[in-house]
Amino acid sequence: MRIQVLHKILLVIAGISIIGCSDEATCIPENSDLLRIAFVDGTGDASEITFVEVAVNGSNEYFPVLKDTTVTNLSIPLDPKDSLIILSFVRSTATNQLAISYKALPLLVDPKCGFEALFKLNKIEQSSFGKVEIVNSTLNKDITTNVKITL
């Protein structure tokens, strides 16, 4: 008879646990579509740089994201439809280009929250800067730098 009693006790515990553990969607995005670029000097410290223009050149589009601005870092939105971004950095003295390939993977956050894309940088396809490195390949709200450009 003891096992029948235990059976019922465990069934009640499981029932209470299932009710208590129902999921509630928070809809706070964890991923980001912003590519974060930091400019540093030879010692690794943040370095200010003045641009006449920074422009994004996707497969089908071209648009400036900055004009006449001095920055130490940039956030550039990636196109989830594309897999390559080409950036033009126009300075008064020179123009540099940077091409980065990436993959965008859509995901359902929750039926109540909708979709977001998980971006992952693949590699530096082309660069006219001296040193460029991908320091964090995943675009995430908590990551402050994805690509570091040493000036």
Partner: peptide, 13 residues
């Protein structure tokens, strides 16, 4: 799946 994928710079897809 079907629905809108929001993007901060490129419009929703």
């Amino acid at each position: 799946l079907s629905g809108d994928l929001p993007s901060s710079g490129w419009g929703s897809q």
